[in-house]
């Protein structure tokens, strides 16, 4: 990699604002995410974390503000176009394709997002290797309605991975899991990050955020109140206030 490539951000968010009627969920948020970075996004409930994710993935249209992904303006692109360019996400409340098996869930991603014309066997191999990596190999033909909570979380990450993302956004993938399961998912995310995938992780479980992130950003009421290394952000007075409430 040349120097200029490493310096240009993977994702650049410029002065992003999102309003719902009279309510402003995001106030002019600007942030750069570097390629390969492990980025933690925290903030109290209703602070705008998921709204920001929805804006990045294209579920919401934004009025003022631009989003650049690999130097391309994607602000007006539909979600599926963003996925094809390399932005994948999981959902806070898992949203599997319920009428399908785990394998079929991943096939959707491979059919539509993986791009190149690859043969059925190749796709099947890709799918199996992703599932094995996620520890879901044995569930390949299981219906998604029969998965446990942690398996659903993993399935969502696997489906996201099948789109071959450059940026993976994990929206509270550990919510509601036991502490050993949290570690399991955390290890998964770390192993993905070690393969050059940039990851934005939204999380309420602080230990997980601290262990995972190289950089943390804290939102409160739609504004960035702190950004920096995990310890810097944790030490910030405003972050503590936002979490403890005033």
């Amino acid at each position: 990699m040349t120097l200029s490539e490493t310096q240009s951000p993977l994702l650049r968010i410029c002065a992003l604002t999102k309003r719902f009627g009279g309510f402003t969920a995001l106030h002019s948020v600007s942030v750069d995410i570097r390629p390969g970075e492990r980025f933690g996004l925290i903030g109290p409930n209703g602070s705008g974390k998921t709204t920001l994710i929805n804006c990045i993935s294209g579920a919401f249209r934004t009025e003022p503000g631009t989003i650049l992904f690999r130097d391309e303006d994607i602000t007006r692109l539909q979600p599926h176009m963003r996925t094809r360019r390399g932005i994948a996400r999981s959902f806070q409340i898992p949203r599997p394709f319920r009428s399908m098996t785990v394998a079929e869930n991943l096939m959707v991603a491979l059919d539509f997002a993986a791009g190149e014309h690859v043969s059925m066997t190749q796709r099947r191999d890709t799918m199996m290797s992703i599932l094995d990596q996620m520890g879901l190999g044995s569930k390949v033909n299981a219906s998604t309605t029969r998965l446990s909570q942690v398996e659903l979380r993993k399935m969502e990450l696997a489906r996201a991975m099948a789109t071959r993302p450059k940026l993976l956004i994990s929206d509270e993938a550990m919510a509601g899991l036991s502490s050993s399961e949290v570690d399991e998912v955390l290890d998964l995310l770390l192993s993905l990050a070690s393969r050059d995938i940039t990851i934005i992780m939204i999380e309420h479980i602080m230990q997980a955020v601290m262990r995972f992130s190289e950089r943390v950003m804290c939102l409160d009421a739609g504004r960035i109140i702190a950004i920096g290394t995990p310890s810097e952000v944790m030490a910030d007075k405003r972050v503590q206030e936002a979490y403890l409430g005033t």
Binding site: S57, G58, A59, Q78, P79, H80, M81, T83, R84, A88, R89, F91, R95, P96, F97, R98, S99, M100, E104, M107, V108, A109, D111, F112, A113, A114, R159, A160, T163
Partner: peptide, 25 residues
């Protein structure tokens, strides 16, 4: 075919389908 899979995906969950690369519209 892939068309059927895409339609099934969007029937189950339109937003999730979009975010998995399905051009739902």
């Amino acid at each position: 075919s892939w068309i059927g899979r895409g339609l099934q995906a969007l029937r189950d969950d339109e937003l999730a389908a979009e975010c998995t690369g399905v051009p739902t519209l």
